[in-house]
Simulated assay, not measured.
Amino acid sequence: MRVAIVTGASSGIGQSAAVQLARRETGVILTFQGNEAGALDTVATIEKDGGTAVSLPLDLGDSARFPAFRDSVVAALRDTWQRDSFDFLVNNAGAGHMAMIEDTTEADFDRLSRVLLKGPFFLTQTLLPLMVDGGAIVNTTSSSTQPLSLEAGYSVYGAMKGGLVVLTRYMAKELSRRGIRVNSVSPGTTRTRIGDNAFERFPDLIPGIAAKTALGRIGEPDDVGMAIAMLLGEESRWITAQDIEVSGGYNL
């Protein structure tokens, strides 16, 4: 059985990606930070469908703990799948923050840098020795990097996600010698827990966003989770170094 590691899979896009991969007969190691109940829900959903999953804690903003996380991955692979390697990595875990440039603190900047750019870089570096040749990586970026999707208040978030888009291309170039494909998905506005469940708290925001989206609604986690699973699948074996916008045609 193939095995994927999906970070930030206790809810939203990561949860959907984990479930979609499991439905493709892929074992899943999923991570969470804080929302252990959500991670256990993801595991339960996968197991209910006949799949296999393990949840592990991970603070993507604390790279000093990545070697210990790697050890936990080694143990999970050995104990659950009798393997010493894995096939797919989804760098999905992230953090949201909105502030105008004049209101952004250095602490805000550093936190987003650690979680959105430094974290995926060094986590990938840490786990690469365990990844099979011919594997695949998907990084979750954001449509906030696109010229037609710029919104005031997301300068640092968008800059870090833009950095991840560029990093995706360099990963694809350098890891191609091992046959590892690397792509990214850029979700548009998606109904997740970001912003403390903003869409549940402010449902009046939805009609305006839907009106600016060609397909007439906001995104759902499965819209993006399915795209991630597709990019890791055999049908995408000739796709690498691409950033795929998954936004329903926002501002099209």
Rank of each mutant, 00 (worst) to 15 (best):
L150R: 13
T213C: 04
R191H: 15
R177T: 10
T192Q: 11
K118C: 06
V165S: 12
T189G: 01
V138C: 07
A172H: 04
T192N: 13
T126Y: 03
R177K: 13
D133Q: 08
P207A: 00
L215Q: 11
D196E: 14
N197D: 15
L128E: 01
T192G: 07
V182D: 03
T145K: 03
G216S: 11
A211C: 02
T192W: 08
V182C: 12
V138D: 01
S186Q: 14
Y157T: 03
Q125H: 13
I209T: 13
E174H: 09
P147C: 06
T168I: 05
L167E: 00
S155A: 15
I137D: 03
V165T: 13
N197M: 10
A210I: 07
M160I: 11
F202Y: 14
T141D: 04
V182P: 05
A214L: 14
Y170W: 10
T145V: 14
E151D: 06
N139F: 02
S184K: 02
I209A: 04
T192C: 05
L127V: 09
R178Y: 01
A210N: 14
L148Y: 00
G208L: 06
L128G: 02
R201K: 15
T190V: 06
A210C: 08
P129G: 00
G153M: 10
A211D: 15
D204V: 04
L175A: 00
A210D: 13
L150M: 14
T140I: 15
R217L: 01
V182N: 05
L215P: 01
L175K: 06
Y170D: 11
R191W: 13
T213M: 08
V182A: 10
M160W: 02
I180N: 03
V166C: 05
G179R: 11
S176G: 09
D204E: 15
G208W: 00
T145E: 07
S176Y: 02
R193N: 15
G208V: 06
P120K: 00
M131G: 01
G135M: 04
V138N: 01
T126I: 12
G179H: 07
Y157D: 02
P147T: 04
